[in-house]
Simulated assay, not measured.
Amino acid sequence: MQIVSYLRVSTARQGSSGLGLEAQRAAVAGFAAAGACTVVSEFAEVESGAKNRRPQLAAALAACKLHRATLVIAKLDRLARNVAFIANLMDGGVEFVACDLPHANRLTLHLLAAIAEHEREMISQRTKAALQAAKARGVRLGNPNGAAALLDGCKTAARASAAVRQAKAARHAAAVAPIALSLAKDGLNNREIARELNRRGVPSQSGNGWYAEQVRRTLLRLQVSLAA
C-alpha cells in the first residue's frame, strides 16, 4: 500500500525545533514498516487544529489522489479537533488512517473527533478565564518590551515557514516527476507539458492548474534533485 504522511504542530517554535514532528514521523514510519507500506510523500504543517484552512493538508490530499494512496497521520487530533472537518474529509474520496487508531471505523472517528473538539473548547475557556483572573489581580499581560521582543520569534517563524514551503515544492516536484520528465523527453515544451498535465488532471502545487512557468520551475527542481 502507498501512503502519504501528514504531520502537524500548532506553533512555529515546535515546527522549527522539530519537537512533535519527529515523534509523529516515527509513528508513521512504524506504521509503514509494520504494514510493508511505501511512504510516497510527506507533508508537515504549522497550524492550529481549530483552523480548517490547511494548505499542506490540501496538498497531501492531492498527492493521495495523484498516487491513489492512503493519508496516514500519527494521531487523530493532528488532523483536526473539529467534527465537521473530519466528516467532510471522510466524504472527500480519500482514505485515511490514524496510527493510534488503525482499525477505527467511521462511527469511532466521529465520536473521537467530537471529544477532541470539546477538549479544544474547554482548553480555550480555561485559558481565557485564567487571563481574566490575572488581569483582575493587576497582572500586566503581554511582553513589557513590546513588539521588539517578538522580532527574534518572527524571524524564526519566517525561516520555518520558508523551509516548509521549499520542502513542499520539492515533494510536489518529486510526485509529478515521472509524468513531467516523460513528457519533456518526448520533446514537449513547457507550455505543452502544462497543457497535458492539466488535461490529465494532475494537481499543481497551487491547485489552480499548470502553466509554463510552473513547469519550468518544477523541471529545474527535478534537475537539481537528480544532480544531488
Rank of each mutant, 00 (worst) to 15 (best):
A113M: 00
R13D: 11
L150Q: 13
A167P: 01
V202W: 12
W210H: 10
R195D: 12
R81Q: 01
P178E: 05
Q14Y: 03
C99F: 04
F43L: 13
A34D: 13
R165I: 11
I3F: 01
L89N: 06
N189C: 07
G209V: 12
F85D: 15
L197I: 11
L220P: 04
S206F: 04
N208H: 10
K135R: 15
G187A: 03
H118A: 11
L101M: 15
K65D: 02
A212N: 03
V72L: 02
T127N: 00
G153P: 05
K75I: 01
L21S: 04
L107W: 09
V40W: 03
L79W: 03
S124R: 15
A80I: 02
R165A: 15
A12G: 08
G187E: 03
Y6E: 01
N82Y: 01
A160E: 14
L19M: 10
Q2P: 05
V164S: 13
I115A: 10
A27G: 00
P144I: 05
C37P: 01
L57S: 03
V176S: 06
V39A: 09
G201H: 11
V28Q: 05
H118Q: 15
A130R: 13
S41T: 12
R126Y: 00
L188P: 08
A157R: 04
L61T: 12
